[in-house]
Design a protein around this nucleic acid. Structure first.
Length: 477
DNA sequence: ATGTGC
């Protein structure tokens, strides 16, 4: 029997029981609710609701699925003064996020051979796949402490981007409080992975704006129907992974020492005010800045790839930044007059119009949230309205898995994957490597987007249809 | 997600 009780349109409640200190809620529209099978993820929300200092409610996004500790598609806000911080509630890929570039090109003006050339030019510059290091590993190692502390402004100073990029990155591309001394030598070693996309669901995608839903908002974002776009999805690579691993173990021990009642290892947590908590936040900020720098470096490589293939210079095709937003991060924010530490794991911040934390350029509109679908389906650009305060200014981060990676590899055939990709160009060695990323392994992005649209939390702005995709190589199984 | 699992 499900823990979910109907609360209001597209909203279900998990009522406080057992060790839960507060209720949890989950947002699902009727289509998603009918086929919902994520009972384990619901239990993870309930577990999170038992942590000290947690603030009502723990929130599940429409793309929720089981993760390590907090489910992916989970939001856990805690009191900034008396609450705990949990590495597992941010996730392994700290500041995994999405960045969207616009171009001044009509997607229809590029034929398939030209798209293929662009993909090759990009992949020549951007290493893909698990464990891959930067092509400029020596430079990365030399400057790593400055990337970690100063973030994208430093990278741009070094020639990897344009000053105006900064206004279109969450946090201006530099989270404060980063301290490299909080980062283990093992993590520093893996820092050489800066400027690479990685594997799994990470990608670089050339797409086409196939539909504009809100002309005024799209115009503000510089998006128009038929336009070629570039979408980049990656995070902090092995660097952030190592930090999560290190601190999750450290927090578990510290919590035992402090006699905190923590429900599961994945939710290992310590008081924000503790030495361990402060150290995690300082290390996490390093990984946040690492990931912002990663997407910035890749942007630079993409710009160079375009001019290498099409001629002209770095600015000939615009390739300006629409926005860059994280979906695995913990941040201090004020909601409803209370200062909170909001853990978002597989959840995208979406600030409403007029919110002071929007960048000036998007103050009146509210910054866009970028929601990728799967490798064969559309992605969305959306903006939030005032009601999104109920989710601590958070929306979903993607379509959400419906099959685990293992199940997808067992159950989906290569031919089915190929068929669902249709005309989309995919650069990679072997389709077998992407079975766990097949569209069939994901929920219907339309139903996921509908969930918040139907109840007025968000508005669709534009839909991006994939044309050509670079995926990080995975493992055949 | 990940130099990929107890």
């Amino acid at each position: 029997m499900s823990l979910l009780e109907w609360e209001s349109a597209n909203c279900y409640r998990i009522r406080r029981r057992g060790k839960m200190r507060v209720d949890a809620v989950v947002y699902l529209n009727n289509a998603l609710k009918r086929s919902f099978g994520e009972e384990e993820a619901l239990q993870q929300l309930a577990d999170a609701a038992a942590l000290p200092g947690v603030v009502e409610p723990v929130v599940g996004m429409p793309d929720i699925h089981t993760g390590f500790g907090l489910p992916i598609g989970g939001v856990m806000a805690v009191d900034a003064a008396g609450g705990v911080v949990s590495a597992g509630a941010v996730g392994m890929d700290i500041n995994c996020g999405v960045r969207l570039l616009r171009t001044n090109l009509e997607a229809g003006s590029l034929d398939k051979p030209l798209l293929r050339k662009l993909l090759h030019a990009i992949v020549e510059r951007v290493p893909t796949g698990v464990g891959k290091k930067s092509r400029q590993a020596a430079l990365v190692r030399k400057n790593l402490p400055r990337y970690l502390v100063e973030g994208v402004p430093f990278l741009i100073e070094q020639g990897f981007g344009r000053p105006e990029d900064l206004e279109c990155i969450e946090e201006g591309g530099a989270m404060r409080g980063a301290d490299p001394a909080a980062v283990s030598p093992e993590a520093v070693e893996r820092g050489a992975q800066l400027s690479t996309i990685g594997g799994g669901n990470h990608f670089i995608e050339l797409g086409r704006v196939d539909r504009v839903f809100d002309a005024a908002a799209a115009a503000k974002l510089g998006l128009a129907e038929g336009q070629l776009t570039v979408l980049i999805h990656t995070g902090s690579r092995g660097f952030g992974h190592q930090i999560c691993t290190d601190f999750s173990a450290l927090m578990w021990k510290a919590a035992a020492r402090l006699k905190l009642d923590i429900p599961t290892k994945g939710l290992a947590a310590v008081p924000i005010s503790s030495a361990e908590g402060q150290r995690y936040l300082a290390a996490m900020a390093c990984a946040v800045n690492f990931a912002f720098c990663n997407r910035q470096w890749i942007t630079h490589d993409v710009r160079q790839a375009f001019s290498a293939v099409l001629g002209g210079d770095d600015r000939s095709y615009d390739l300006g930044l629409v926005y860059d937003v994280a979906h695995n991060i913990a941040k201090f924010e004020e909601v409803g007059g209370k200062r909170l530490l909001i853990h978002r794991k597989g959840a995208t911040r979406a600030l409403p119009p007029g919110h002071p934390n929007n960048p000036p350029l998007y103050r009146d509109l509210g910054h866009p949230a970028l929601i990728p679908g799967s490798m064969g389906t559309a992605s969305y650009v959306i903006v939030a309205g005032p009601k999104v305060e109920q989710t601590f200014y958070s929306v979903n981060h993607g379509a959400g898995r419906v099959l685990s990676r293992g199940a997808a590899k067992r159950e989906i055939e290569v031919e089915e994957l190929k068929e669902s990709l249709g005309e989309i160009l995919v650069l990679g060695r072997n389709y077998r490597e992407y079975l766990d990323e097949a569209p069939q392994a994901y929920k219907d992005i339309e139903a996921v987007i509908d969930t918040f649209t139907e109840i007025g939390f968000t508005r669709r702005v534009a839909r991006l249809q994939p044309l050509a995709v670079i995926k990080g190589q995975g493992k055949e199984s």
